[in-house]
Design a protein around this nucleic acid. Structure first.
Length: 891
DNA sequence: GTAATCACG
DNA sequence: ACGTACGTGATTACT
């Protein structure tokens, strides 16, 4: 017979995790009385996962009783300095208990003890009585309970992702056994519980020492044998702290409980009460799981999905019956197999007119005048999922889509871009709608992807998408409104999607002959370098393999490995540059690498993607980045080389449509620093931009305390430039020192000077972090959001990263907002003036145009104007331009 | 499929 | 004291 199973949950820590897992949804999760419910909801979700996984016979959720426990008697500051539990969470705790009781689950708390101790004690009892014990917690402290009979599940990211600590896993992670973990903690202390441990001892050292000595006590018994060192001194000086730490870290496994194991059996679920509870909390998802069958005893009922949708297969004759009037709204979906919609096979389409959904595999039906007119009529508004994809796809059928004013994909991206999926099924599930399958479930993925033969399967999928677009529209629009993003949606993202469709359809002409010529030149150069490298190494090997290269350099030739990667020696540019003087092979490798990169990625890569029309048609991904920038794929036109002479040659292949035409390029000057000057309101920096100074020279003058920019040396300017960039990224002295190859101390001095000279920038940075902490997200000037759940992370690195992101995102994101506005205005201007000039490429702060000869003068005038006037700031926006008969010469 | 490297803003 | 710049995509090697 299988063992009886006991499940023990640390109520407070799991509730805490649950609260922060959905922190960004805090204000969306409220019941009609205004009670926050995010933690209750997530707690229940977590519970379902664990109950289903463990299927326990006995369950207990333990809570902390009050503020002080026996540990405070040993150490008054225990858990001191901890932030108070936010009221939005504490108000939910009683309801979590109520929910648990309705589910037939016991809860328990005991004065003077923590939930940990209750769990430790029950685990001890459970093990004695032959239970298989599972502990669930958000706190690693409890891993000391792991044993052959007890597994400790610790929440990893979010709450649904749990890491199972067995004694073996414990050993892998910490290098010690669960009981030794107590001693390890005694030495290293615990920041969150506010006790110190031994000075200068962190997890690494603590683990080593305990592995060597087995326990704190044994370590001190043998301390005299230890070699003299700073660490030994610290250990001796902080002996009291270590011994105290051990007491504090040890979970009391013999708490004087007032209940026994028989009191915590998992009882019957009280469905009546549970239903009332869900109604009170407005938990529709859980309510829908409570239909009569589930009341019959099934504890876990998966959410229903894939209801059949009513649809009609469209036949040619039906099309004549369509009568859609101006002002009406329809919903349309065009299915394609594969990501690249410039080339992908059509799967079919679905269209909803007057409450009737029509589907067909035959996209040629769309070309029939009746349907074509509907799709091209601007007065008939359309809901779609992915405007750009739909528009480009229809264009391949000779249909010029107009009137699309709602895009579910764009809406969901603006509302929350953490999960930047472009799969409709996944997006629906984020909003609790399980009715749409993922495309990869219907079509398969990779090579085996195909269109289902079964009409029912395909049509149901297509029609289901139509329903979902309509069903979620109201919800998504309401959220956009709530976020003050209706303007961003309707007046920036939707119009920019239309502009991008035009750009992608146009493409840019790439001359294959120019590339093949470069290919030959680079091939000769590569052969030459290859030979030199083999001679120097004394053998032939694959230079492109970091593993083989590392072997040659650091083992065979005995060079000093400066940096390591997870898998071996690092051979990155950084490292090689530092070794440059050691051997001529280093320079040869650097040259080889550089050319090889250009050859494979750009020469060969571009040749592969030139279409029959002699042009490349990139796809701009509009719903991918966390900051609101675009990205570009197939090919990526946003990273065409510019920094090296060889690389730059690639740009010669990018040419205008007409032989005597021009490539015209216009880029914003220092847009991110200008945005920084704007959002920080810093007087000094704003003044510099208003005066039209060279901003890096100005910064150099400021931080080096010079009287005039005339006194700035090139070195000073270079350093000031790096500081300016660093500021935008959320600077650290370490990062700057590495970038400039200067001491950390010197870097710190630069930064201190900077903040002294531009005090409001420092204020901005502090405020950005503070606001992100309060709201859970960072925001651009156009209300684009980036959620930063990690801003509350316990882990210093994770949290610091979120803090830098809070500083950087509004800057990078606002710059992205600005150029998007410029693009919309620019396309409108080109259309209004009936110009033949095409906007062809966007590279974050620059726009590239394909200009007929006789329009050059006009373009020279209007492009900078439009870009500079995209938004009105307290400081001027400046755009510089250049042109030539190819992209190389357009500088 | 992931890691390392390097191309861009 | 912690260990570090912010966004991206493509290619290659190798599991």
């Amino acid at each position: 017979m299988a063992d009886k199973k006991l499940l023990l949950i640390d109520g407070n820590s799991v509730a805490f995790r649950a609260f922060y897992a959905l922190f960004r949804q805090l204000e969306n999760f409220r019941n009609p009385e205004g009670l926050h419910t995010n933690a209750i909801y997530t707690f229940k979700n977590m519970l379902d996962v664990v109950l289903n996984d463990v299927k326990p016979d006995h369950v207990l959720v333990a809570f902390d009783a009050g503020k002080t426990t026996f540990r405070n008697n040993m150490y008054a500051d225990y858990k001191g300095g901890r932030q108070k539990t936010p009221s939005e969470l504490s108000e939910q705790l009683p309801y979590i208990q109520e929910l648990l009781h309705d589910l037939g689950i016991s809860t328990y708390e005991l004065d003077n003890y923590e939930a940990d101790d209750i769990i430790g004690t029950f685990a001890t009892i459970g093990e004695k009585e032959g239970f298989k014990v599972t502990v669930v917690t958000g706190d690693k402290d409890l891993t000391q309970l792991a044993s052959p009979q007890t597994t400790v599940m610790v929440t990893k990211s979010g709450v649904l992702n749990l890491e199972a600590y067995t004694p073996e896993h414990m050993k892998e992670v910490n290098g010690v056994t669960p009981t030794e973990f107590i001693d390890m903690k005694a030495l290293m202390g615990d920041n969150s519980d506010n006790y110190p441990g031994v000075t200068k001892i962190g997890p690494k050292k603590a683990s080593q020492l305990i592995q060597e000595y087995g326990s704190v006590e044994n370590l001190y018994d043998h301390i005299d044998d230890m070699k003299p060192s700073k660490m030994k001194e610290n250990l001796i000086n902080d002996k009291d702290k270590a011994l105290l730490g051990k007491k504090l870290a040890t979970i009391d496994r013999h708490t004087p409980l007032t209940i026994g194991i028989d009191d915590i059996k998992w009882r019957e679920v009280d469905y009546q009460k549970l239903r009332r509870f869900y109604e009170k909390m407005n938990f529709r998802k859980f309510l829908s799981q409570l239909d009569p069958e589930s009341a019959a005893g099934q504890k876990d009922q998966p959410v229903k999905d894939n209801k059949a949708v009513a649809f009609t297969e469209l036949k040619e004759n039906d099309i004549n019956n369509f009568a859609v009037k101006d002002g009406q709204t329809i919903t349309f979906y065009l299915g394609m197999l594969g990501a690249n919609y410039h080339l992908a096979d059509f799967v079919g389409f679905a269209i909803k007119i007057d409450k009737q959904i029509y589907v067909s595999r035959n996209v040629d039906l769309l070309k029939e005048p009746q349907l074509k007119n509907i799709l091209e009529n601007k007065q008939i508004t359309k809901n779609v999922f992915d405007l750009k994809r739909t528009t480009v796809g229809l264009n391949r059928l000779g249909i010029h889509a107009r009137g699309i004013d709602y895009d579910m994909l764009l809406a969901s991206y603006l509302i929350n871009n953490e999960n930047n999926s472009d799969d409709m099924g996944e997006i629906c599930r984020m909003y609790g709608d399980n009715s749409v399958k993922s495309d990869y479930d219907v079509y398969g993925k990779g090579k085996s992807a195909h269109i289902p033969e079964d009409d029912q399967v395909l049509f149901n999928h297509l029609a289901g998408k139509i329903e979902a677009i309509e069903n979620l529209k109201e919800t998504l629009l309401a959220k956009l409104k709530e976020h003050e993003q209706d303007d961003l949606f309707a007046n920036i993202e939707i119009p920019v999607a239309r502009v991008l469709s035009v750009m992608e359809i146009n493409g840019i002409k790439v001359q294959a002959e120019t590339l093949t010529q470069l290919q030959d030149e680079f091939a000769v150069e590569l052969k030459k370098m290859e030979k030199q490298i083999y001679d120097e190494a004394g053998e032939e090997f694959n230079i492109n393999s970091p593993k083989q290269l590392g072997h040659i350099l650091f083992e065979k030739m005995g060079l000093k490995p400066i940096k390591k990667t997870k898998t071996g020696y690092s051979t990155s540019v950084d490292v090689l540059n530092q070794l440059k003087d050691e051997s001529p092979i280093i320079g040869q490798i650097l040259t080889y690498r550089q050319i090889a990169k250009i050859q494979s990625t750009y020469v060969n890569g571009l040749l592969d993607v030139i279409q029959k029309d002699g042009r490349v048609h990139t796809r701009y991904l509009q719903t991918l980045t966390a900051t609101g920038r675009l990205s570009s794929v197939d090919p990526n036109l946003q990273n065409i080389p510019t920094r090296t002479e060889e690389g730059k040659q690639i740009r010669k292949a990018f040419v205008p449509s007409e032989p005597d035409g021009y490539i015209f390029s216009c880029d914003y000057s220092q847009i991110e620093l200008r945005v920084l000057a704007q959002v920080s309101g810093d007087e000094q920096m704003q003044e510099a931009f208003r005066t039209g100074y060279d901003i890096h020279a100005h910064t150099a003058m400021k931080i080096f305390h010079l009287k005039s920019t005339a006194d700035v040396t090139p070195l000073m300017r270079r350093r000031a430039k790096a500081v300016n960039f660093g500021i935008v990224y959320g600077i650290s002295d370490y990062g700057l020192s590495k970038n400039l190859n200067i001491s950390r101390k010197q870097a710190k001095q630069f930064i201190d000077n900077y903040f002294e000279q531009y005090p409001q920038i420092k204020d901005y940075m502090n405020k950005a972090v503070q606001v992100a902490r309060e709201k859970g997200y960072a925001e651009t000037i156009m209300h684009r959001r980036r959620y930063l759940p990690d801003i509350h992370a316990k882990n210093f690195n994770v949290r610091s990263f979120a803090e830098r992101t809070a500083i950087n995102s509004p800057i990078q994101g606002s710059a992205a907002d600005i150029i998007k506005i410029a693009m919309i205005n620019m396309q409108k201007k080109l259309d209004d003036m009936h110009l033949k000039t095409k906007m062809v490429v966007q590279v974050h702060d620059e726009l590239i145009f394909d200009v007929p000869k006789d329009e050059l003068e006009t373009i020279k005038k209007i492009v900078p104007e439009v870009m500079q006037s995209a938004v009105r700031l307290d400081i001027p926006l400046v755009a510089d331009s250049g042109y030539g008969h190819n992209w190389f010469d357009a500088k």
